[in-house]
């Protein structure tokens, strides 16, 4: 099959670009364990509200300084409504919902995950900047979808965190 010289060059260029994309995705995945939130754990949506873990959402600070945040996403709020986490420490979010699909997005960061009834969402991230962040639901969940939000406060001083060592 005859292919024009310039088009041939273009095809090699396109191939090179795609190879660069594939390598950068592959390298970050395998060398830095950089993966999307893909935790596999199921939970009965009917039991979320009375669940030993998700029934009492809140923040736990561990001995090594890292934190676990347990969140209940409901129509139309994130519980607890205000979440305090330490700066510069790994923070693991564990989120479940008793009703519909929601999105858990910490605006202007890459903290972003779907919350699906029947499944536990879990991801870990580090906040490098102290301050107040807005959490929004970014998956349509009915007539009050736009009222579903929460507040995340990244504390410079971990001892300020209420509910610590709970």
């Amino acid at each position: 099959m005859h292919v024009d010289l310039y088009e041939r060059i273009w095809m090699w260029g396109a191939t090179a670009i795609i190879v660069v994309f594939l390598i950068s995705i592959g390298v970050t995945t395998f060398s830095q364990a950089f993966v999307p939130p893909s935790h596999i754990e199921t939970i009965d949506p009917d039991e979320v509200r009375s669940h030993s873990e998700f029934g009492e959402p809140g923040v736990t600070i561990h001995a090594d300084g890292s934190a676990t945040v347990v969140v209940q996403a409901i129509m139309y709020a994130f519980l607890p409504r205000e979440i305090h986490v330490p700066r510069g420490q790994p923070v693991t979010f564990r989120i479940a919902t008793p009703d519909l699909i929601h999105g858990f997005q910490i605006a202007q960061t890459n903290g972003n995950a779907m919350v699906v009834p029947g499944y536990v969402t879990q991801f870990t991230t580090v906040f490098e900047e102290a301050g107040e962040y807005l959490i929004v639901c970014n998956e349509y969940c009915g007539i009050g979808h736009h009222n579903m939000f929460g507040t995340l406060i990244v504390e410079e001083n971990p001892s300020a965190i209420t509910g610590a060592e709970r």
Binding site: I25, T29, V35, P36, P37, S38, H39, I40, E41, T42, G103, N112, A113, M114, V115, V116, G118, Y119, V120, T121, Q122
Partner: peptide
Amino acid sequence: HQLMDPGVDATWKL
């Protein structure tokens, strides 16, 4: 389209 979904294995997403 499900990169941010729980319950889907990361290998398959890749």
